[in-house]
């Protein structure tokens, strides 16, 4: 899909901007919802619950555990051609960036959502949301910069096992630092 000429030029920036905005939108919703959820227990309880939940999700990501996670099991329809070279990709990116409009082949977004919901202050939610959007945009930039034949996806699939391990370690490092503060 990213091999299409429509992803060249301003379309890619609009798409990445949409990813960022969508991720920030979801982080904001989680922050607001979390302000109510957190009233149910003291912060220390949430920290321990988060540590346990993130550990379980990390084990799922590594393939050690298998359990269902909520996700929207369908593809986002492409509006690129309907809404022009800027607003089409922007809307498409926004919907993907929210992470609630399509498949999520990883458990790490769920872990991030829980961290924002139960622990983040406004600045932390902003940082996590921006980071999430940038992480998703890295896929787009990486794919388009890697080659013009979409072989980046093949490289991902070929190294997926190790890539997921590296990402789980990185996620665990960042999460541990946040939880221990």
């Amino acid at each position: 899909m990213l091999n299409s000429p429509v992803w060249r030029g301003p379309a890619r920036y609009a798409f990445c901007g949409g990813l960022l905005l969508g991720a920030l939108g979801t982080a904001f919703v989680l922050l607001v919802a979390g302000s109510l959820v957190r009233l149910a227990a003291p912060p220390v309880v949430w920290r321990w619950a988060l540590a346990g939940a993130v550990a379980l999700l990390a084990l799922r990501e590594l393939g050690v555990l298998r359990f269902w996670l909520p996700q929207n099991p369908r593809l986002v329809p492409e509006y690129v051609h309907r809404h022009g070279p800027v607003f089409g990709p922007l809307q498409f990116g926004f919907e993907i960036g929210t992470s609630v409009r399509t498949y999520t082949p990883s458990a790490l977004p769920h872990a991030t959502a829980l961290m924002i919901l139960l622990l983040a202050d406004p600045l932390a939610a902003l940082a996590a949301g921006a980071g999430f959007g940038l992480g998703r945009a890295l896929m787009t930039v990486g794919n388009l910069s890697f080659s013009g034949d979409n072989s980046w996806d093949d490289a991902w699939i070929a190294g997926e096992r190790w890539i997921r391990r590296i990402l789980v370690v990185a996620f665990a490092v960042a999460t541990t630092a946040v939880l221990l503060r």
């Binding site: 993907i96 932390a124 999430f132 896929m139 996620f171």
Partner: peptide, 21 residues
């Protein structure tokens, strides 16, 4: 810097979704 840890956490999770598009 806790802010950077949150950004790294989000970026890692965001990149892990590669392949869903």
């Amino acid at each position: 810097g806790p802010g950077f840890a949150w950004i790294a956490m989000g970026a890692t999770a965001g990149f892990a979704t590669s392949g869903s598009v």
